[in-house]
């Protein structure tokens, strides 16, 4: 990496952090944009549900099918629901739903705000007595932070159902027994960190998408770039947050 691009990288990290911090300093002062927040929750949460649901179902199904042979080899087929449920709930469902959202929502926000920026719609809002940061950014970041945990929890449930289907392709696992075993393997300390980290995933996706769009450079080409780099940076951040989260749970012996 050239020293100059490294400097740009650091500058951008600083800018994004400042932008994320501004969400807290401006977002909790009145005038609250509840109407717009609800609208964004609908778009971000409800509209992403089908995609997240299908992916989660397939992940649960595939993971179960692929884990079976190994467990059979050790004669531990009965552990299948427990093992699958722990990996799904702790890691796969939250991270996959966050990545899907980074792609769908991050690019959507980046492109939407980017085109609003280049066609001066953001300036027009400001002239119309509206703080565009509150109206556009705070509502979207808030909606992401609230909706992605909800999507992740739904993804947990749907992927476990996928696991149930997967377990029944080769073997036979009774419905009640599957859920008993799945939940028996899970403890509160599995669930809590997995859910807490999804709030951070959502926040990061919202902030990056909004930042990229809000500071989109002029012209339609800039809009495409904002959408694109919003996805790249948001996906990367999801993994980094995941890495940090696992270290923290490790330190507090929650594993």
């Amino acid at each position: 990496m050239k020293p100059n691009s490294f400097k740009n990288f650091l500058a951008e990290v600083g800018d994004i952090s400042a932008f994320g911090w501004r969400f807290f300093t401006e977002g909790f002062k009145p005038r609250y944009e509840f109407g717009e927040l609800l609208r964004q929750c609908y778009f971000i949460g409800y509209k992403s549900l089908p995609l997240v649901g299908i992916t989660a179902f397939i992940m649960g199904l595939v993971l179960t099918i692929q884990s079976r042979p190994t467990l059979v080899e050790f004669g531990a087929e009965a552990w299948l629901p427990g093992m699958v449920s722990v990996s799904l709930v702790r890691e796969i469902a939250p991270v996959i739903s966050a990545l899907i959202c980074a792609g769908k929502i991050g690019s959507g926000i980046g492109a939407e705000l980017g085109s609003m920026k280049v066609t001066e719609q953001i300036d027009a809002m400001e002239v119309s007595g509206t703080n565009p940061f509150k109206f556009l950014v705070v509502t979207r970041v808030m909606a992401c932070t609230l909706m992605i945990p909800v999507l992740a929890i739904l993804a947990d449930i749907i992927s476990l159902y996928g696991g149930y289907m997967g377990a029944n392709i080769r073997g036979v696992v009774n419905w009640d027994l599957y859920w008993y075993q799945a939940f028996d393997a899970l403890s509160f300390s599995d669930l809590l960190p997995a859910i807490v980290k999804t709030f951070f995933f959502g926040y990061a996706i919202g902030v990056v998408g909004c930042y990229k769009g809000y500071y989109s450079s002029k012209g339609t080409e800039g809009v495409g770039q904002s959408a694109n780099s919003a996805v790249v940076v948001a996906s990367l951040l999801v993994f980094i947050i995941d890495l940090v989260a696992v270290q923290i749970t490790d330190i507090f012996q929650l594993t």
């Binding site: 609003m116 719609q121 300036d123 027009a124 002239v127």
Partner: peptide, 12 residues
């Protein structure tokens, strides 16, 4: 009042 050169109508 301010009329923008690019109109700046809200697309959505």
């Amino acid at each position: 009042g301010f009329l923008f050169q690019s109109n700046a109508l809200y697309d959505s």
